[in-house]
Design a protein around this nucleic acid. Structure first.
Lengths: 268, 268
DNA sequence: GGCGTTCACG
DNA sequence: CGTGAACGCC
């Protein structure tokens, strides 16, 4: 079977249900991992997701900020909580579906100053990444595991509109690049979108709301990722390469999220 | 010629331009008197009104609150400012069109407690009404004058969903009923909607947002009025009665104002 | 620039 | 309930 996994920072699920419903109708993901739902679990628009054909929900919500949820066409089992957030924010939710564990993360943005001694938010981001690395290493490359979400890091030179300029900006600083590479290497994860479309093609999944015309300036970043362990990758893409892409057309819809959805198709 | 005058508390003109454009396209008012535009004059969506065929504008705006504007198909001359608002709010704008003076008011709501000694907002409302009465008396019954707007008073027993219950509620208390009757009598104004549809037919132009289904509960008030002096009434409705009505269907549109527009057709 | 918050207002 | 305001966050 095909398992279509999607990650999307929706920037308020209540405000964006219609766009989510349209995207789900058009692309038919089997599992939709959302970040920044910005509501508590009881406020989550369950009925709308039932109507979309994604009735199985795992929600980690909190008031106003952050919040993640995974919605599925197929029944979900709970996954292990990796306890990555030292601040107690609702930034991760784990599920198991069709024998695959899917860890859905909203990694802290990290504020403006890329110095962990000066900026507690940046310290928190790095701490979060370090905790993920430890858990992923413990899981190992043979686990049938996907980690996905808004990682708030653009890992590669071709994941930012200007590598040179972005090296000074939180999301692409050398310390973050080292931390995200350490996370990737911890279980040998394969970045499915980048495997599908290798360097040097530039790929972005986020564009600031501040640009009048995001297409024209195209100052994007690739912050949203779907990573598979080597064992799962071998199983899901036996012989072929990964099939994953960013649906950047969605960023041009009416009242969009600042993030575009990302889809990967696993053959299980 | 027919002069179609409309009054409408739009509750934010910037948020409601589309509904205003639809209503103007459907009903073709010649003069549209708006209240609660909730913006400063430079923020007023002039282009949208030009596109609607109402390019002539008289705007009294302020930041965030209140604000009135009169938009016209025909050129406007400025009318005399009656200086009714002691607080300096943008609550009135006066124009002359086709020889008729149109005074557009957003009379203060007056807070919750109907006691001028305890509640400065209620005192302000009564002061505003008293100042209007003095100015209207000075203008006299022979002036070609319309006063219109959101008066925030339901003057008659059949202008409220429950006369008995509303007598204790600001907008229909005995002291307000006396003040609004004094204003009416000051120049012998004719209430064009009530003349068109006499007592005991209940007529409302406002329904609270708080009711889930405003039609079902129908706890409305008639707060929005178009009043003509006797001389203008005699000229505009010679022989016949007035032709004025409340477009309450608009209250059921998507994202509506809590007030419905009111139209009167004058034959000049 | 577009989300959430709390607040005042109607 | 649904507008504005000011503020925090990304």
């Amino acid at each position: 079977m095909r398992l279509r996994i999607c990650t999307w920072n929706v920037n308020s699920v209540r405000l964006r249900v219609e766009q989510v419903a349209r995207f789900v109708a058009e692309q038919q993901p089997d599992v939709l991992c959302m970040q920044e739902i910005k509501c508590q679990a009881p406020e989550f628009p369950r009925e709308a997701f039932e109507a979309m054909g994604l009735p199985h929900l795992a929600i980690a919500g909190q008031k106003g900020w952050h919040g993640v949820a995974t919605a599925s066409r197929l029944p979900l089992e709970p996954g292990a909580d990796w306890g990555a957030c030292r601040e107690g924010h609702a930034r991760s939710v784990a599920v198991k579906v069709q024998g695959v564990e899917i860890q859905n993360f909203y990694i802290p943005a990290g504020g403006d100053i890329p110095d962990r001694t000066l900026n507690p938010k940046f310290d928190h981001k790095l701490d979060f990444l370090e905790r993920l690395s430890a858990k992923a290493a413990a899981a190992g490359p043979k686990a049938p595991l996907v980690i996905t979400g808004d990682f708030n890091v653009a890992p590669g030179e071709f994941d930012v509109w200007s590598h040179k300029q972005m090296l000074k900006i939180v999301s692409h600083t050398p310390i973050e690049l080292a931390a995200i590479e350490k996370l990737r290497a911890s279980a040998g994860f394969v970045d499915l979108v980048r495997e599908t479309t290798p360097d040097p093609t530039k790929l972005f999944s986020w564009w600031s709301y501040r640009a009048a015309d995001f297409r024209a300036s195209n100052r994007g970043l690739r912050l949203d990722h779907i990573w598979a362990t080597p064992a799962l990758h071998a199983q899901a893409f036996a012989g072929r390469g990964a099939e994953a892409r960013i649906h950047d057309d969605v960023r041009a819809w009416e009242r969009p999220s600042d993030h575009a959805p990302v889809i990967a198709d696993l053959a299980l």
